[in-house]
């Protein structure tokens, strides 16, 4: 019953909107923008967020609570508000925006702006989930590793990371979905180049639903396999 309720909106894909317009839907460039730039954003988030989440586990109070409150603030931020704040802080005309532009990094309507917005949009989600993953690793196992002669980095590599990997995979898939579907903030900071969500909006405005639905189908079919794979892999490993 719950599954039927969740799947019901997909019924809209067979709505009588007329023949689907594949040609001129700008599927390929939107796909390339979304996947390429979201991939880069995710790499950044994982590279920075993983060690941060690991160190957060051992951070002393009250600093840890303060930091978590800041992270929650970024997670709770409405996407449109996040975009507006980003453009007001980094955008053209701001001191930071001007400085970055002098180094050849435009802070709006650019790949850099696209990636930065996605990082802001999904970093908190990744961090919270990754911290929970690391907290699930029993400290006594890490202690056993150290008592068996492993350095701190070897303990992380051989014990902590393998035991937290399923949680980290879930964190990465949540961040991926969050970043890829980001619309409100991207609309403000990086209308160009068009990613998938913005292209959906543009197609709706310019050509109507027949140009939206093909793009939506491609979007869902291409974006979902990664989080699904993570999800099924983690369930399989838990059952094993």
């Amino acid at each position: 019953m719950a599954a039927a309720v969740l799947l019901y909106p997909l019924w809209g894909l067979v709505a009588p909107v007329g023949p689907w317009r594949w040609h001129g839907s700008h599927i390929a460039p939107a796909l390339a923008t979304s996947f390429g730039l979201t991939g880069l954003a995710l790499v950044l988030v994982v590279l920075v967020g993983t060690p941060l989440a690991w160190s957060l586990r051992a951070a002393p109070e009250p600093w840890r609570s303060v930091f978590e409150a800041i992270v929650l603030l970024s997670v709770l931020m409405p996407p449109l508000a996040l975009g507006l704040l980003l453009i007001l802080a980094f955008g053209p005309g701001t001191p930071l925006g001007e400085s970055l532009l002098r180094f050849g990094v435009p802070t709006s309507n650019s790949a850099a702006a696209f990636i930065a917005t996605q990082v802001y949009a999904c970093f908190g989600y990744y961090l919270l989930a990754a911290t929970a993953a690391f907290e699930g690793v029993p400290p006594e196992l890490e202690q056993s590793g150290a008592l068996l002669g492993l350095t701190a980095s070897a303990v992380f590599r051989r014990i902590t990371l393998p035991l937290a990997r399923l949680g980290l995979a879930t964190a990465a898939s949540v961040a991926w979905v969050r970043a890829l579907g980001e619309f409100g903030a991207i609309m403000v900071t990086s209308y160009y180049p068009h990613g998938m969500p913005v292209q959906l909006w543009v197609n709706l405005q310019d050509q109507g639903l027949p140009a939206v639905l093909p793009l939506l189908v491609v979007f869902l079919l291409s974006a979902l396999p990664l989080p699904w794979a993570f999800h099924f892999f983690s369930r399989k490993r838990r059952r094993a």
Partner: peptide
């Protein structure tokens, strides 16, 4: 800890 050449065994020992 890793520089002490010791073996430490307790009743709560857990395997990896």
């Amino acid at each position: 800890l890793h520089r002490r050449s010791l073996g430490y065994l307790t009743q709560r020992e857990r395997l990896f």
